[in-house]
């Protein structure tokens, strides 16, 4: 069985353990279980990062000879983006108050869902879309922003359900990175082709612009309106993830 599929399966399993331990720690009120969840998530992050490197590296000419020794299957299509997003969506620093230990499970939930979707794609016969044009800088940037956005989504779910002090930086980082990366791409497009969106498929165009506009609305909202901010963040992240995995 291909190495990447094994790694993604392991990562998905460890994330499920992390989610389960998180919920169990809340039911039992035992901090040691939430630390176990934290360790499982760290392990899953490491495994998924290696899986993402192998998956993306298999299509790069400079790394083909090296990656080919480990895994001969060259992957293409949405599964590449899903693996990278799952790896980036796992939070590495978690401070959960004792009154809401169970809520740490919500931090790992988006990453687990992304890893599960990647695993389903890998093991389903014929589901891997062989598109030779998937490995582009735009697709990689979208996957990075989608992964960080999924991490922000986990924090937002924790904020809404357990009323915990909000961690701003994942959302700010995603918003800033999205603005910088796609603003730069728009400048290059303006220079080369004379218009902002020439050469970009409509699905990508709609997803990126929609996510950025919704996130801008979230950034302009006052902090006290948590419910609305949470809804806007969820919509923005889902648009980004949808744009990252939509074939064109």
């Amino acid at each position: 069985m291909p190495v990447v599929a094994i790694l993604v399966g392991l990562g998905c399993g460890m994330l499920l353990v992390a989610v389960s331990l998180g919920i169990w720690s809340g039911l039992r009120g035992r901090h040691v279980l939430s630390r176990g969840a934290y360790a499982a998530a760290w392990g899953a992050a490491g495994i998924l990062v290696v899986g993402a490197l192998l998956a993306w590296g298999s299509g790069l000419p400079a790394l083909e000879s090296l990656i080919g020794v480990i895994d001969r299957q060259a992957l293409e299509g949405p599964v590449l983006s899903l693996i990278l997003m799952a790896a980036l969506a796992i939070p590495l620093k978690v401070d959960t108050p004792p009154r809401a230990l169970w809520s740490c499970a919500l931090l790992y939930l988006p990453a687990w869902l992304l890893a599960l979707a990647a695993l389903v794609h890998l093991v389903t016969p014929g589901a891997v879309v062989l598109r030779a044009d998937w490995m582009t800088p735009m697709r990689f940037a979208l996957a990075v922003c989608g992964g960080l956005g999924a991490r922000a989504l986990g924090y937002m779910l924790q904020l809404v359900t357990a009323d915990i002090a909000h961690v701003d930086w994942p959302g700010n980082l995603t918003y800033g990175l999205t603005t910088f990366l796609f603003g730069s791409a728009a400048l290059v497009n303006l220079w080369q082709r004379g218009s902002l969106w020439a050469g970009v498929e409509p699905a990508l165009r709609g997803g990126i612009a929609g996510a950025w506009l919704v996130w801008s609305a979230d950034w302009l909202e006052p902090r006290r309106r948590r419910g609305l901010r949470a809804a806007l963040t969820i919509v923005a992240v889902l648009l980004l993830i949808a744009a990252a995995i939509t074939p064109t």
Binding site: T179, G183, S184, L187, L190, G194, L196, A198
Partner: peptide, 17 residues
Amino acid sequence: TYNPGRWVAGLGIVILM
């Protein structure tokens, strides 16, 4: 392409970023 707003768009994106 003929885009009279090309330089305005470029300036706007730089200022925004």
